[in-house]
Amino acid sequence: MKMKDFSKIFLNWLQGEEVLSSTENGRDRSRKGEAPETSLADGLFREQPVKKLERVQLKSFRIFYAVCAVLCCAALQATLLTTVANLPGFGTLSENAEPLEEEYLTQGMEETGATNIVAAIILNYRAFDTLGESFVLFTALCCVTVLLRADAKNQREHLLYRDLTGDNILRFAVSLVAPMIILYGFYVMVNGHLSPGGGFSGGAVAGAGMILLSAAFGFDVMDRIFKEKFFNTLCFCALGFYALSKTYSFFCEANGIDSHIPKGIPGTIFSGGLILPLNIAVGLVVTMTMYGMYCLFRRGCVGGVSGTRNKDRPGKEKNERNGEKEKNA
């Protein structure tokens, strides 16, 4: 094999030049039978037959990549396995346990009023972390909206999926099951400070119930309740409430001011201070995010606004789609 050529390419690649692009490009062209344009590899080996050389380069690069990838994976796996073998075994208490965890366990209930210590950690001690998580979810929803929202420029081919909304059996089954699922989601949300669960898991369950509803009854029914404005207002209010109330409570506690937030009796439903409302706020955000992402992926809008616009102008959509195809071809 042309070890020399190969090493040359590799050195170039190390210096940051796009070897892969040129070889890939070459392969594409040679397959199509077109004349390859001047690229980096051509410049390097102009005096030799280009097509053959490019294929050789490509092949050698493929082999090189595969070998490198296998080595990389094997090295990673070996390192990780060695690390695990030297960790304290599963289920054993490590000798240098954190004093923090002991403090959380012994004083967590007294300080926060929640019997679920994990909820106390994530919604009281580390509440801003959880606020950040909610904002990560919300930001992801915004990004998905930017990428997938249907408008005049970006039309969705939303009629490609098989529509099951007319199915009577599905409708009946969903009308029995979906309220239970949503109710269970809210139960998990509201009981977050007493039992396993909380806003994120409860919100995911409730969101799944709403997705089921919209899959069975169609978006027209859901749009009567979930207008885009309602959706936005709910998300904004939940996030705003979370941020403001937690800022207030942190400010008060850090400065030794009585915040007048009752902690309640641990173990009862109205306990845990702010954890219960915060769980509901987080749960609402997660529900809305799940449902909103489903809507955006399936038809390109959350409320009923853009969808009706699409229906009104089917001809324009078709034309634009054809235009795009031509552009691609």
């Binding site: 346990a97 965890e101 366990l105 012994t106 209930m109 679920n116 210590i117 994990v118 950690i121």
Partner: peptide, 19 residues
């Protein structure tokens, strides 16, 4: 790490690490 008996004494050694 869920305290089932809020009135009883809490011993950190009874629970797993919540972090």
């Amino acid at each position: 790490p869920i305290i089932t008996d809020p009135d009883g004494a809490i011993n950190a050694a009874d629970y797993i690490n919540p972090i």
